[in-house]
Amino acid sequence: MSTQVLFGQLLVGLINGSFYALLALGFAIIFGLLGIINIAQGTFYMIGAFGGWMLLNYFGLGYWWGLLLAPLIAGIVGMALEKTLISRMYKLDHIYGLLLTYGLMMFIMGTFIYFFQTAPRPYPVPPELQGGYNLGFMFLPKYRAWVVLVSLTFCLGTWFVIEKTSVGRNLRAATENPMLTRAFGINVPALLTFGFGIGVALAGLGGVLAGPIYSVSPIMGGDLVIVVFAIVVVGGMQSILGAVITGLSLGVLEGLTKVFYAQGANMVIFVIMFIVLMVKPAGLFGQEK
């Protein structure tokens, strides 16, 4: 194994890792704020990708519009579901939220399969991002670099908003102590709906970003959500920073596995999860309660 190849693999791992980070972030926000294990996160990723695809094919709106509107669509669908269904789960055990979102996932996925079948649909890379850079040790497609840039920007931005701004403080307060927060005149249910919307919009954004790399299909989010779930567990369920860092590092680790033992690539993240749960049940960045 030459160092050139190794560098290439590390970079590819980082690219995938930034994807994972984006999705894990949405997942961690929703669990952290609402206490909902949102198994339907992969479905919102798919809705985002399909949103982009539909905007292009039915309305002639290109990638940039898709990037703007598809996460919004996913977010609005998410908020509607939160208002009508998911908000009823807050007082119950986590398992009920998990079952509900699992049911939602099956329902939405089934509906999409009914109308669109499972055959993947092409969603082209926008002309501005075609081609790539020759880095010497590998050829870096422009679009992949773009994905890393967008993912990291949004990860850092979201972390900043939640940890450092007044909106974020209100959000955190609403989850810590809803009664007291309400006493300060803050509309807690609306805040939670907003939080859920942000979480799923991040998944929707991931979907639009993924469209040109993978193909758009109703089943695209099904497997991914399991990996993302594992990443969030490893990072610590409520930890936003944990989700981002774990997403990136497990992406790299998975990339390395593909070089040294490709057959195990689908498994390595779960092996890590198993080990972490044995040693540190709250996750690497989680706090024991």
């Binding site: 190849v5 590819v12 590998m138 050829f139 992949r144 593909k258 490709a262």
Partner: peptide, 18 residues
């Protein structure tokens, strides 16, 4: 050899390139 149903092939493709 890649697992059945792999979504990202970039790593394998780079190995091929090498």
């Amino acid at each position: 050899k890649h697992p059945l149903g792999t979504s990202d092939f970039s790593s394998f493709v780079l190995q091929a390139q090498a």
